[in-house]
Write a protein that binds this DNA or RNA. Structure first.
Lengths: 226, 226
DNA sequence: GATGACGAATTTGCATGCAAAGATGATGCG
DNA sequence: CGCATCATCTTTGCATGCAAATTCGTCATC
C-alpha cells in the first residue's frame, strides 16, 4: 500500500519533513534496525512520493547521525557498536547531570511544583508496570529538567541526544525491576533538588543514568543485540 | 564565475557534500552573515551545479541548526539573538568543563605530553599577536582535550558545537589583551591537569570559557552586531 | 499618502529522466 | 571446487521540468 502517511491532514508540512519524521520515529523505536539498508525508490513507493523528498529526508537524518550515507553505495541505519552506545550513554549521563545542576539553581517555584507533580504521577505507573506509560513519563520528566535550565540551546541539544538513545532506553526499561529502581533514583534526585543542592542532584543524576547504562549493557550481552 | 569549487581534485566526494562544506565554512567564518537569504538557483549557479545538490546541502545544514528553512519561503542563515549566543556559550563552557574533567582522569601519558607541547607552542603565537594562528592553535588545544576523554561520541558532539560558535569566537579573540589572558587561563588549566585534579581543571575551564563569553558580550554590545 | 487588491514574476517543492558507479551473477579458468 | 572476469542489472547522484506557493509591482481606492 502506498501513501502510508496521513494525507488527510493539511499538507502545510513539507513532504520531506514528514518522511524525515516518520523515519526518525521508526529508527528511534527500533522498527528499522541498525544496519538496515534504506532503498530510496522503495521508501519513495512506501510514502507515495518520489525519490527527491526521500533523499532530502535521508540527508537530514545523516546530519543528525541517525543514518550513514556511504557515497554511491546507499544509506543504512547507523550501526552502533556496544562501545559507541556506552559512549553515548556516558555523554547523556554527563549532560543530564549538568542540566539538573543548572536546573536546581535556576528553576522557578512553578517549574519545581510541575516537576514534583510529574514525579508523583509516576508512582501509579510503576505500580501498574506499564512500560510504555513510564517511557512517556520519563521523557517528560527529563525534558522538564532540561527546560528548567533556562538555557534553550542546551535543552535542544539534550533532547536531541536523548532521542537518539531512546531506542536503547526502551529495551533497557523493559528489564524487570528497572522501573522500580528508576523511580527510586528519581526520588533521590528530587530530594536533592528540593534541598537546593545542585551538586548532589548532579551526582545522583549521573549515577541514575549510568545505572540505566549498566542495565542496558547486561541486556545487550544477554540478548546479543546491537 | 561559476564552478568555484576546486574541481581538479578527484570528485570522489559528493557534490552535495562539497557544497555543504563550503557553505558551512562561509557561515562559520561570517562570510555569510546571519539572516542572509540563500537562494537555491543562485547558489547552484555559483557552484556550477543544479538545484538538487544545493537543496540537499541546505537540508543538512538545517538539521545542524546552521540555517533555517521556512517552508516554501526560502532558507536563511540562522539568525542568533544575543541570548541564544550566550546560551550557546554557556553550553560550550559546561561541555568543555565536562571534557577536561574526564580527560584529566583518562588521558594517556602520550596525550598529556602532546597537550603540553601544544600549549607551549602558543607562547610564541601570543608574543607575535597572530590572531589567526592563535585561533588555529586554540582549536587544536581544545580538540586534543576532547579526544583525551576517550569518548568519541562526546568528542564529536563537542567539536560540532564548538564549530558552531567559531564565528563568534574569532570576533571575540580579536579584542586586545584577550589573547594574553586566554593563554594565562590555559596555563592554569594545564596546571590542574598536571596535578590530576579534574574537578579543578573543570572549574578553571568553565571560567575560561565564560570569560571568553563575557569578552564577546562586551564586543557585541560595543559593536552592535548580532 | 497609506492601504488593499490583483496579476506577473520568482522561487520553492516535487517528479521524472539519464548517466555513471556499484552490486550481482553467470561464465571460464586454474 | 574455488576464484577471477566480464556482462547485466540495480541503485545512486544529479539535471531538468513543471505546478503550486509566495513575493513583488502596479493600480485603484480611501
Amino acid at each position: 500500500m502506498t501513501d502510508e502517511l496521513d494525507d488527510t491532514t493539511e499538507d502545510r508540512e513539507l513532504l520531506s519533513d514528514r518522511i524525515r519524521n516518520a523515519l526518525e520515529d521508526e529508527i528511534a523505536t527500533g522498527k528499522l534496525e541498525a544496519g538496515a539498508a534504506l532503498d530510496e525508490q522503495q521508501l519513495a513507493d512506501r510514502f507515495g512520493a518520489s525519490r527527491t523528498p526521500v533523499r532530502e529526508a535521508l540527508r537530514q537524518l545523516a546530519a543528525n547521525g541517525l543514518v550513514e550515507v556511504r557515497a554511491r553505495r546507499g544509506v543504512v541505519v547507523a550501526r552502533m557498536t556496544p562501545e559507541r552506545i556506552m559512549d553515548m550513554f556516558e555523554t547523556v549521563a554527563e549532560i543530564e547531570a549538568m542540566c539538573v545542576r543548572l536546573a536546581t539553581y535556576r528553576m522557578t517555584p512553578l517549574e519545581r511544583s510541575h516537576l514534583i507533580e510529574l514525579h508523583d504521577s509516576s508512582e501509579a505507573i510503576v505500580k501498574k508496570g506499564d512500560f510504555d506509560a513510564y517511557d512517556t513519563f520519563n521523557r517528560a520528566f527529563h525534558e522538564a529538567i532540561y527546560h528548567a535550565t533556562h538555557n534553550s540551546f542546551l535543552a535542544e541539544q539534550a533532547i536531541a541526544i536523548h532521542n537518539r538513545l531512546m531506542a536503547f532506553r526502551r529495551a533497557q526499561l523493559q528489564q524487570e525491576q528497572r522501573l522500580d529502581r528508576s523511580r527510586v533514583e528519581h526520588e533521590a534526585i528530587m530530594e536533592a533538588i528540593a534541598e537546593g543542592d545542585g551538586e548532589l542532584a548532579s551526582r545522583r543524576m549521573r549515577a541514575h543514568m549510568l545505572n540505566a547504562a549498566t542495565a542496558l549493557r547486561r541486556f545487550i550481552e544477554a540478548n546479543k543485540l546491537t
